[in-house]
């Protein structure tokens, strides 16, 4: 086997090995981006307020408004009893938007 063949074998082996390592490293670090949801779907979270009638189990969910706190009396009323609803919970909820 002459010197040129040794060089070709050596060079090819190193090159192929380097490409394999490169692909592996790229996959390892970029997999989050590769498998990320399509750009049209954006996952965000928003504050939600849950209101409850003090007399029955009627519940109303709406976006958080300034001044909402658990136990506060809301301006919304119960359609059955007509009483003002009370804030039962305020929490964040993730939602998927489709553009």
């Amino acid at each position: 086997m002459n010197d040129l063949n040794i060089f070709v074998i050596y060079f090819t082996t190193v090159t192929v090995g380097a490409i394999i390592v490169l692909i592996f490293i790229t996959y390892f670090f970029m997999r989050k981006h590769i498998f990320a949801p399509p750009s049209g779907e954006i996952v965000t979270s928003k504050a939600v307020t849950v209101l409850k009638c003090p007399l029955c189990d009627y519940r109303l969910r709406r976006s958080f408004k300034e001044g909402d706190h658990v136990g506060a009396v809301a301006t919304e009323t119960c359609p059955i009893h007509g009483t003002n609803l009370i804030v039962e919970a305020v929490y964040s909820e993730s939602e998927e938007k489709k553009d």
Partner: peptide
């Protein structure tokens, strides 16, 4: 530390 999540509520 951040806004309460639904799971915690």
């Amino acid at each position: 530390l951040t806004l309460m999540t639904k799971e915690v509520a």
